[in-house]
Design a protein around this nucleic acid. Structure first.
Length: 554
RNA sequence: GCGCCUGUAGCUCAGGUGGAUAGAGCAGCUGCCUUCUAAGCAGCGGGCCAGAGGUUCGAAUCCUCUCAGGCGCGCCA
């Protein structure tokens, strides 16, 4: 349990005990908040007010009684003082010792400080990016990648068993289109100018692809009949683009456990299997030659086609099969991270999963909003239409993986993101990535200096002498980390981590400015080095949760 | 037209079950390096939390409506 949970359980067992005298209604879930103002204590609870409302009594007397019970429950171990305030808040101040214990714990656990078992081994399937292999990843995919990868790390850290998967749409119209586009570019390269298909992929990368292809195969397909060579072009184009995607993700430090080709679903008959299972439920009907799912009855806007009039299954059918496959693999939870433009798709997938044995309750879809690149205060224009969009690779080359990951996670994914390239490259306080990393580098520098002076951090450092308000404040910042991680996992919101890290770095830099870690009494030097180590550990761990490096020098 | 996301300082954004005097960075101005890294710190100014109703001891937070922006509404993926 982290410190907040510990105090929470004190309050809740106190409330439970009092519920005996007050009546069952008094047994409510307890929530502790961290007050904005230090004067309101380390934690504050409105439990007395909630209970008073249920009991139809006045809050202040309830608060007095509850406070007394909490004090008894704690037995003087962690709580220094309790105060009734305002309409009936109970403000709790912890003893310095309580914070010192958390710091000691951080030192003992090292890079495992903040871990928890709240996931209880839940098996989570995490699907993200899953961009079609029809072109390079762009900045929007980068956001999905950053969110997905960080969430995976956070969930693992909090006791979930995570499998990260990329679903590769390697069949269907778009792949045909891609093959035709490559063929056209290839023929043009071979000196036989050819028009692109009407909706063909017209990006610059297709021309480069055609050149690569020609370098490998020469001109031997220049005059071959399209229908004969199309399968080859389709495959080559898809494979090469996918290889590029994998490379980009690797550069971006995004790790997958599995790349799942849609092709396999078809090959194993799982797509028709899923359709037939739905048919068996009596949820399908034929209309104008196509097979529809009665998704409207299950919350969707309209019924959806699973099998087209020409007999081919739709993308939707394959996706239903894919999710059915995940369920059959035994996952407890399916988390999909999609671009916001796919939101209209959620209802139909849910409908299908509900029909397949209620699996929709395991599905969570995180919709990541769009990204606009901003340079010098102005949006960078891009247009997918002409095929001229900014790729993830370009951004990584410009600002680096660390800054890119940090910036992508610096906004809640619910909101549109303005990605400020100028700021991401800046090397000042204004750039939060450097601000946080600098805190880590500075601490490393302290330890280097200590070593130069022949000082090493011994076991059992005398943390208890660190009683200055600034010292306690820094300890509190460290102590908050496990709770932040836990909340981040629970809410599926990775952005809480970088925000917390900025606050921690802020506390550290302030402290650094006003105090010296080394050179006071030997005892104080030991104690402060211990505190520095705790901060360093948390910064490093926090950064690792979002996939950003913690440099030793800058 | 219907649906989803968003609307908080000049700009970009935080604000864990509804909680006490709404925060940070940027931008602007002013100070601080013979010291463990100035990629740092301190200070100043800045707000009708889009608007209107409602729920209640209490609303940026919940409900309804309006307005504004983004996205979606294919036998495309």
């Amino acid at each position: 349990m982290n410190i907040r949970e510990i105090v929470e359980s004190l309050v809740s067992s106190a409330a439970k005990r009092k519920a005996g005298e007050w009546g069952e209604d008094a047994d409510l879930p307890v929530f502790l908040e961290i007050p904005r103002q230090e004067a309101h204590g380390d934690f504050s609870t409105n439990a007395a007010m909630q209970i008073a409302r249920k009991l139809g009594r006045k809050p202040r007397p309830i608060a007095e009684e509850l406070a007394k019970a909490i004090r008894e429950e704690d037995g003087g171990r962690r709580i220094a003082s309790l105060e009734i305030a305002g309409p009936g808040f109970i403000n709790i101040v912890l003893s310095e010792k309580a914070w010192m214990e958390v710091v000691a714990q951080a030192l003992e656990k090292g890079d495992r400080f903040g871990e928890s078992s709240r996931g209880a081994g839940e098996r989570v399937h995490l699907e993200f990016v899953s961009a079609n292999p029809t072109g390079p990843l762009h900045v929007g995919h980068g956001r999905g990648a950053a969110v997905g990868d960080a969430l995976g790390r956070i969930l693992e850290f909090t006791g979930h068993v995570v499998v990260r998967e990329y679903y590769v749409n390697d069949v269907g119209n778009q792949m045909d289109n891609l093959g035709r586009s490559l063929l056209a570019r290839y023929r043009t390269e071979c000196g036989r100018p050819t028009e692109l298909p009407e909706d063909g992929y017209r990006g610059e990368y297709m021309i480069e692809l055609a050149r690569e292809f020609r370098a490998d195969h020469g001109d031997r397909y220049a005059d071959a009949p399209a229908e004969e060579v199309l399968p080859l072009f389709r495959k080559e184009a898809g494979d090469r683009i996918l290889a590029g995607i994998r490379e980009d993700l690797e550069t971006f430090r995004v790790r997958y456990d599995n790349w799942f080709p849609e092709r396999e679903l078809h090959a194993r008959g799982e797509v028709t299997g899923a359709v037939e299972e739905l048919r068996g439920q009596g949820l399908l009907y034929e209309s104008e030659g196509a097979t529809f799912l009665r998704s409207q009855e299950m919350g969707d806007e309209k019924d959806r086609v699973l099998v087209r009039a020409d007999g081919r299954t739709t993308y939707f059918a394959a996706d239903v099969a894919y999710h059915r496959h995940k369920v059959r693999e035994g996952y407890d939870r399916l988390i999909d991270i999609w671009g916001a433009d796919h939101h209209g798709y959620v209802a139909r997938l849910r409908a299908a999963l509900r029909a397949l044995g209620g699996a929709d309750s395991a599905l969570e879809v995180l919709l990541v909003q769009f990204v606009t690149l901003v340079r010098d205060g102005k949006p960078v224009q891009m247009s997918t239409r002409s095929g001229e969009f900014t790729t993830l690779r370009e951004v990584l080359e410009e600002v680096g993986t660390d800054a890119a990951r940090f910036f992508y996670l610096l906004r809640s994914y619910h909101t549109h993101l303005d990605f400020d390239l100028t700021l991401a490259k800046s090397q000042e306080r204004s750039n939060p990535v450097y601000y946080v990393q600098y805190a880590h580098a500075r601490i490393c520098s302290i330890f280097r200096e200590a070593e130069a002076r022949g000082v090493t951090l011994a076991g059992n450092p005398p943390i208890s002498i660190l009683t200055l308000p600034d010292e306690i404040r820094l300890m509190k910042a460290v102590a908050r980390f496990p709770d932040v991680v836990s909340e981040s996992a629970k809410s599926r919101e990775p952005h809480r981590i970088p925000f917390y890290l900025i606050e921690l770095a802020d506390q550290f830099h302030k402290f650094y400015q006003n105090h010296r870690f080394l050179g006071e009494t030997p005892e104080r030097t030991q104690a402060r080095m211990a505190l520095a180590r705790a901060v360093k550990t948390v910064v490093a761990t926090g950064l690792s949760l979002i996939g950003v490096t913690a440099p030793e020098t800058m």
